[in-house]
């Protein structure tokens, strides 16, 4: 049943509905105080595999495993899985992986699979947990992305071409949706007007850059990024390339380095230091003087005693 749940989305949906109906009926028969407890839906383990390629070069697989219980999701920690390429045989084993605290595991493709990898343009990945096959049909087709930048009539353009491999040939990949933009912290800021772009029948798309004069590094460079997300055929692809289209920005730390009231004790405002030290020193100077006077009284007293 577990396998069924994992594999068939609609089946799972049906089951969930069925279960919740059952639960409702069941809990209706209970009194209120136990209702919350009884409604607890069954926990389901969900394993997800994704293929990633970066700059048409490095490729890796990510596996994520969670337990889903009602609305709550908890990662499955420290669980071992085995990933295979094309067939579940020792010869085509990609790796044994173990999930981390977030329920995630990652692997590269080992060089030993070179022959198998080169043999075809399309591959299937298989994931086994022990003897149980949890994923058997995650497939990807090899592809590559080219970024080309050009400035015509003062307008900056990014031209993207995506190709897929078919047999030993590279053909245009049409209808691939992607983000085209500038790599920023945590996301890609789209370069043109649209959120995403899709390749035409020739596998290309061209974007006129709207987001001009963005801050770049100290040389004025920005990173252009093209990202295909969870594509059914190609997986997750990312290509990045530098372009000198940004505005030169140098880090200005003056604000932080000021002497202010909120600075650290090593950057106390000078006026405050001056004031505080003058007051403290003059008052305590006098006090120390008075203590000396006390000692003088003491000395005088001893002298008088003699």
């Amino acid at each position: 049943m577990k396998k069924l749940l994992l594999k068939i989305n609609s089946g799972k949906l049906l089951l969930t509905i069925l279960l919740s109906v059952l639960c409702t009926v069941y809990t209706a028969a209970q009194d209120d105080s136990t209702a919350v407890k009884e409604e607890e839906p069954e926990a389901t383990e969900i394993v997800k595999l994704s293929y990633h390629s970066s700059n048409n070069s490095i490729q890796y697989l990510l596996l994520k495993s969670i337990i889903k219980k009602g609305k709550e999701q908890t990662p499955v920690k420290n669980k071992a899985y085995t990933i295979y390429l094309d067939s579940a045989a020792d010869a085509t084993k990609v790796a044994d992986v173990k999930t981390d605290a977030d329920g995630k595991a990652k692997t590269f493709l080992p060089p030993s699979l070179k022959q198998a990898w080169d043999a075809s343009a399309q591959h299937i990945f298989i994931v086994k947990a022990g003897d149980e096959e949890v994923i058997s049909d995650y497939s990807i087709t090899k592809s590559k992305i080219t970024i080309d930048t050009a400035t015509t009539d003062g307008i900056r353009n990014i031209n993207i071409t995506i190709q897929k491999q078919e047999g030993s040939e590279w053909l245009p990949a049409a209808d691939v949706e992607m983000k085209i933009g500038i790599q920023r912290l945590g996301g890609i800021l789209t370069a043109g007007e649209e959120e995403t772009y899709t390749t035409d029948s020739s596998g290309t798309v061209s974007v006129a850059v709207k987001n001009d004069s963005l801050p770049g590094d100290d040389k004025g460079n920005i990173i252009l990024a093209v990202k295909v997300d969870d594509n059914e055929t190609y997986g997750n692809l990312l290509v990045q390339q530098a372009a000198a289209w940004g505005v030169k920005t140098t880090t200005d730390n003056n604000f932080f380095e000021q002497r202010t009231l909120w600075s650290t004790r090593f950057r106390t405002p000078l006026w405050l230091l001056f004031l505080a030290y003058t007051i403290v020193l003059s008052v305590w100077g006098t006090l120390i003087y008075l203590v000396f006077q006390l000692f003088k009284i003491k000395k005088l007293g001893k002298q008088a005693a003699h």
Partner: peptide, 29 residues
């Protein structure tokens, strides 16, 4: 694709992506 995507695909891929970016930068470098 047999991914059991329950709406948190977006979130996951988002995170994974950043890491990819990291590798990619290395490659560029």
């Amino acid at each position: 694709m047999s991914c059991n995507c329950n709406g948190n695909c977006e979130k996951n891929s988002r995170r994974e992506f950043l890491l990819t970016g990291l590798l990619a930068t290395m490659a560029v470098a």
